[in-house]
Design a protein around this nucleic acid. Structure first.
Lengths: 363, 363
DNA sequence: TCGCTTTCAGAAAGCGCTTTCTGATACGGT
DNA sequence: ACCGTATCAGAAAGCGCTTTCTGAAAGCGA
């Protein structure tokens, strides 16, 4: 006999791959059997769905404990009880803006014992649609769209054809930031008013010559902030020519590139530069410094969002503070709250202007 | 007739809540019926599981398209095909360190068409266990533990009792950072060697008097970085007394508090402070400045991780750069790769010392 | 032409739960 | 003692898929 060649793993013949044998997960049936009750009773005892004699309930509980029973969420979802996951779609969790909002969503989800299916689109619109479809397949109880909508007919239509059936099937949707075409609950940061207030504050500091580092014009967030900023300046009789609005990607490097373009444009140097997001402002800060400009002595810089690290910069960044985690939390609350009637609900979060060292007073 | 009182919503009687009627989702049966085939054939046609006559396949595809069919992931998972979700547990997505790693995981997951169930424990060990259990219930294909293990018997045991059954049932697990007790695949940042290299670099700059701002001592990451730093100093004959290691929470504010404690401790001011993470270093930077100390003229400061924004600080932070997104990606790869044999696999990522402006040369 | 294999579609079993329906038992009122 | 009514446990029917099993039809050589 070549007993010696036999797999080590005595009790499971034929295993040659050296992997440990896979055990089947414990099912409700096993628990019921051990407790000496029917699966129906076991289910009721564990979930408290209906009255079960105290003695049986204890026996079931004990059996579940002893076997290390964990219910199969897929079976539960399939059998009709609502799924316990919510979907969150954002552009990039690596970006501090989204990370902060996501963090708030996670906290709120944890309180409700919900699991979060998070997805990053990496700013590819196609991926957003694909994720939506996957979240529908998962029967996510709610879907949160974090980040501004794109003002583009084709994209809006594609989004709607995914979302409409989901809503009809009882799904809940909420967005953070404005989506032009979506009739769903929304958490709206005060982009316009915040930018306008910032403009007023900067004018108050004595600035008259501005430039704006903007993101892609199709993003509602960009459109609103630029419009608000321009409106705020207009109030004070200051004009912002279109030539002073430079576009770049919605990232640190985008801000850097936009700032370079501004400086290379050859126009007169503004006394103050407004980057529509803090992340872009960080890139701009680097670019301005690389050109030998001192902040704020040679040029002032302001951002928007107040993401965690910008107050630590030297000089600290003047910006419009948004309560990012609270906004994430609010979005989940909104999506999960029972809708009353047809009306969409909107929750607004005002931005607060925080003047720090990156903007100087112009004499 | 009180026709006028009737609900607006003509085609679905009895609705008084003003909500639109909920439609049932389209099922595979509906698709099959429309295509004039059996559900079995429809399934095979859609999934390409087996050969189906081309004409039928086309008919099924068309029917699915026409009805907007989306398979029910729960039913699919239940019927035996592997689930398409992976679980990721980290301490806090709002922290740039975890956000960067998570970002890499998301990218890798997207390539494989997997959905990521992300959870933040907010540093409560109990929640980690609870999440693990929820991820098991979801039959996640793999579970990634991001962040260092806690050296605590009770916690380690609790973790193991969740993980062991999961592994036995065929689940895959990988960790980022060292876990003392876990025999699973791991992505290991070069904490010891990186910290040692940093120590050598700082000594090379002329520093001899050091202090360390450390996190909770139970975290393996903290233990390894402190040990490595100390070892690196020892090589150069520099000693780091225990009294010069100050503990704080693993956050920005923890770094701030630790720095304050150091300054209030009354000992001589070190020429260089090493915070075991960049996030803590940021807090320390603020604290040192509040006390009127200039960086690096009065005291040098170094961190670890090279999270996105610290290179933008003024002065930019000297640190040990870790390829965070790549580490996240590697963790997912590791967990998903078919295991060969019993051995756990370990992927190491060396840290690279990046000397920037926050550390000066001591004459 | 017959009997064999091969190809492909349908029937049906089941994945692990929840929930409705049914039935047994105990209780109270008359 | 009897009947109506609660109360609680079990039987069984799904939830929407995948997959095995079964069977019909077609193709081929003898």
């Amino acid at each position: 006999m070549d007993e010696l060649d036999a797999p080590r793993n005595g009790h499971q013949a034929g295993r040659r791959d050296g992997r440990p044998p896979e055990r089947q997960p414990v099912t409700l049936d096993a628990v019921a059997r051990l407790a000496g009750v029917s699966p129906a009773t076991a289910s009721r005892a564990l979930n408290g769905t209906a009255r079960v004699r105290e003695e049986l309930r204890a026996r079931v509980r004990a059996a579940a404990e002893a076997l290390g029973y964990i219910p199969n969420a897929h079976a539960q979802a399939l059998a009709g009880s609502a799924s316990s996951t919510v979907g969150v779609i954002c552009h990039d969790v690596g970006d501090p803006y989204f990370a902060a909002i996501a963090s708030g969503v996670m906290a709120a989800a944890a309180e409700r014992n919900l699991l979060v299916l998070l997805s990053s689109t990496f700013r590819e619109p196609g991926r957003e649609i694909a994720y939506l479809s996957m979240l529908r397949a998962q029967r996510a109880r709610a879907i949160l769209l974090i980040g501004s909508g794109i003002q583009d007919r084709a994209w809006e239509r594609a989004l709607d054809t995914e979302l409409a059936p989901y809503l009809r099937e009882g799904g809940r949707v909420a967005v953070v930031s404005r989506h032009r075409s979506l009739r769903v609950d929304a958490v709206l940061p005060g982009n316009r008013t915040g930018a306008a207030a910032l403009a007023r504050a900067l004018v108050g500091l004595g600035h008259r010559e501005f430039a704006v580092l903007a993101g892609p014009s199709a993003l509602t967030t960009v459109a609103d902030r630029v419009a608000g900023f321009r409106a705020g300046l207009a109030e004070a009789g200051v004009e912002l020519p279109a030539s002073r609005v430079v576009r770049g990607a919605f990232t640190r490097d985008g801000g850097h590139a936009a700032a370079c373009e501004l400086l290379d444009g050859g126009g007169p140097l503004p006394t103050c530069v407004f980057a529509v997001t803090d992340v872009m402002a960080v890139g701009a800060l680097a670019a301005l410094r690389e050109r030998g400009l001192r902040i704020p002595e040679d040029v002032s810089l302001a951002g928007f969002d107040d993401v965690p690290l910008v107050r630590e910069l030297t000089p600290a960044l003047t910006t419009v503070a948004l309560p990012l985690p609270e906004m994430g939390r609010a979005a989940l609350d909104l999506a999960l709250r029972e809708p009353r009637g047809e009306r969409v609900r909107v929750e607004r979060f005002a931005g607060e202007v925080v003047v720090r060292g990156s903007t100087r007073v112009v004499p």
